[in-house]
Amino acid sequence: MGHALAIIGLGKIVRDQHLPALAGCDALTLAATVDPVAAALPGVPHFASVEAMFDAGIRLDAAAICTPPQMRAAIALPLLARGIGAFLEKPPAAGMAQAALLADAARCSGATLFTAWHSRMAAGVEPARQWLAGRVIEEVTITWREDVRQWHPLQPWIWQAGGMGVFDPGINALSILTAILPDAVMLEAARLEVPGNCQTPIAARLSLRSANGTPITADFDFRQEGEQTWRIRVDTDAGALLLDNGGAVLTLPGSAPAIAPDEEYPALYRRFAHLLDTGTSDFDLAPLALVADAFLLGEVVQVDDFHE
């Protein structure tokens, strides 16, 4: 039967990605769902709150928390206290202090804690990391521009404090960046463009640097129309490496683009099942720390109001 898992939050990402991935994972069994608004799935116990699920006596080994980020820490803490492993959709929390509390709770209870950076599981990411190892990295340029109306329709939480705005997709790029570079990365400066009727940025420009001095720039924008762009370019002493389509397509110098099927979420659940089996955690906060620093250090510029 595998580990008994609850899914908390039944939004678009769950229906598009989590449920199909779980259906193909024998190591995990969907035991319950929690959402105060969404309809139940056929044949799966459904609850309006985590407390109601606890009261019903559902046996759980783990839970995937797929709510807006503002809610994740408060939901995860009582689960971890009961020894229930937590799979946290990205970003794992709305702030670094919340994330630190989760790490402490997992250490105290021995529960598994997993930051599910799905873009790190894109087909080109691990080959890119291996190719870059030992090479001189001269410059990194990130261009992550998409249409928010297409990818986040009618999701007002993304514009509220803690919702991340354009960093909701942008943190995917930072998760890849911190996975493929051999050195740690720090933020030096940021420009955040915030609509007058929102609390989070619709666009951001970041200046970063690796520990060995490599300059890195990132351009995040939610206002892209037409072709969408999710690209990381790494210039090295051996030529330029390109990761396109969010890490799915890798192009090495002198080679044709390498394209592979999308296996991000199946790979995440396989990884989570392994962590549960071994009683270990994988809780990397490097991408979240860079976003937090952008809010701390960034120059805020007001731009036109955003309307769906």
Rank of each mutant, 00 (worst) to 15 (best):
G246Y: 15
S49C: 11
R120H: 03
E263M: 11
D147E: 13
S175R: 00
G57Y: 13
Q302P: 12
A63S: 04
L28E: 08
N172L: 01
T217W: 05
Q98A: 09
L208Q: 04
A258R: 15
A100F: 11
T33S: 10
E146S: 06
A122Q: 08
D219S: 11
Q70I: 13
P78Y: 02
V34D: 01
L297C: 05
E263V: 13
N197A: 11
L252Y: 04
A106L: 07
I158V: 15
T278E: 13
M71C: 11
Y265F: 15
F306T: 04
D293I: 02
A39S: 13
T236K: 09
S119Y: 10
R120W: 06
G9C: 13
L10F: 08
Q302L: 12
V34T: 05
D244A: 11
P257A: 07
W131N: 09
I7F: 04
T33Q: 08
E188F: 06
A99R: 02
V300S: 08
Q160M: 06
R120S: 00
S49P: 14
G85T: 10
L177E: 00
R129Q: 09
I84C: 03
L22N: 02
R209G: 01
D237H: 04
V44N: 01
I58V: 13
M186H: 02
L296R: 13
A103Q: 11
A31K: 07
G254D: 08
T278I: 05
G246P: 04
L102E: 02
D221T: 09
I180H: 01
G279P: 14
A294Y: 06
G165W: 14
P201V: 07
R209V: 15
L80S: 07
F114P: 09
A48H: 07
A258Q: 15
R145T: 13
V125C: 04
L154I: 11
P261M: 10
L285M: 09
D219H: 15
A100K: 12
P69L: 02
R59N: 08
R209F: 03
A273H: 05
G85W: 09
M121L: 10
L60R: 01
A40G: 09
L252E: 10
A86G: 06
A184G: 14
D304N: 09
D55F: 02
P20A: 04
A27K: 10
E227W: 12
W117C: 00
Q224A: 15
T236C: 08
M1C: 07
